[in-house]
């Protein structure tokens, strides 16, 4: 936004009524600043961080827990704003991201940077005050990893961007666990590993049927640099590597029979999907409009959500009120 878009005084050549109204007006509303924070990504962060907090063996005061989740979400949103500041040029090229506030001209890049930096500081300091220094340190590292390591460095330089950058999305349950326990455990590391290993097949399935976007933007996605058959192989390999982490979590203190039964079914489904993607070639995919790739992408969303929901169910069953 800019004050140049409107003249407040009555003495200038333009008064407010002369400024064109409607969709052409480049004046950001509050919602545009909220959109900078990538609310959809924040919802996943809130959910996984909440699970990490609730399944931990140590309880926290509900108000402290709620505040901690809020500041974790704020930190994730801040890193989203920093990402939008840095990636404004490629966001403007890709159809999926053209409507974001910066490429749409609603928010100036400098404002996105200021919002990102200010909220990062507030989120980390407030999380330290609300919970502990380890949780705040992990949040600060997550923001740094997403904004600097992923957005500024890896995204435009290597086709492994999704693999390493996926770590940023994997930290929230670890932070939630650290809020409750003040430490890191095998359980929180496995929750990290599940999201970390899940991210590549999830995004590569998306990249297979959103190929034009990444290609136009010049982002070195695996589909662009190594070709689509190699991407299909990578999806299968990473899905196979994901399985032991997902099943293994069921044998720790946060798992149990409900989790194991659900995880076995979900992993079988994901493996079959990855196998079907691997067996196909481009001609088959083009012929049915990437039906299998789209199915696996959708399934992967349920896969992650249901795994973390199962952790919650196990925690509820373990609690004094939920046990038998």
């Amino acid at each position: 936004m800019s004050d140049a878009t409107i003249n407040h005084g009555g003495t200038g050549p333009r008064n407010a009524a002369s400024v064109p109204a409607g969709p052409g007006v480049k004046e950001a509303g509050f919602g545009d600043y909220v959109a900078l924070l990538k609310p959809r990504v924040m919802s996943l962060v809130v959910f996984t961080a909440l699970v990490g907090l609730l399944v931990a063996p140590v309880g926290v005061h509900p108000f402290v827990g709620m505040s901690a989740i809020l500041f974790i979400a704020l930190g994730a949103g801040a890193s989203g704003a920093l990402n939008m500041w840095w990636d404004a040029d490629i966001d403007a090229v890709m159809k999926r991201t053209q409507g974001r506030p910066v490429p749409a001209g609603l928010v100036e890049p400098g404002e996105a940077l200021a919002v990102g930096l200010a909220l990062s500081g507030i989120a980390v300091v407030m999380l330290a005050l609300a919970s502990n220094l380890l949780a705040a340190g992990l949040l600060a590292f997550t923001i740094f990893f997403y904004a600097v390591v992923y957005s500024m460095w890896l995204k435009r330089s290597t086709p492994q961007n999704i693999v390493i950058g996926g770590a940023a999305g994997a930290f929230p349950p670890m932070i939630g666990w650290a809020v409750a326990t003040g430490g890191v455990g095998i359980e929180s590391l496995l929750m990290f590993a599940i999201i970390f290993m899940w991210t590549p097949p999830h995004f590569w399935a998306l990249a297979l049927f959103m190929k034009e976007d990444y290609h136009k933007a010049g982002v070195p996605m695996l589909t662009v640099t190594h070709g689509r058959p190699a991407t299909r192989t990578h999806i299968l390999v990473y899905t196979v590597l994901l399985v032991p982490f997902a099943i293994g979590a069921g044998f720790t203190s946060i798992g149990g029979p409900v989790y194991l039964a659900l995880s076995a079914m979900l992993n079988l489904g994901f493996l079959i999907g990855a196998w079907r993607i691997w067996r196909r070639d481009e001609a088959m995919a083009e012929a049915d409009g990437y039906r299998v790739e789209k199915q696996v992408f959708r399934f992967s969303l349920y896969y992650l959500f249901l795994h973390f929901a199962a952790f919650l169910v196990e925690a509820a069953l373990r609690s004094p009120a939920g046990g038998v």
Binding site: A16, A21, V25, F30
Partner: peptide, 27 residues
């Protein structure tokens, strides 16, 4: 002054910031 779309958006933005600050103080 004639009410304009831009004034409405600015009011919405100011209201949003105000409510966010109140929520922050409450937290």
């Amino acid at each position: 002054r004639t009410e304009h779309e831009i004034h409405r958006r600015r009011f919405g933005r100011n209201l949003g910031v105000g409510l966010t600050l109140v929520a922050f103080i409450a937290i």
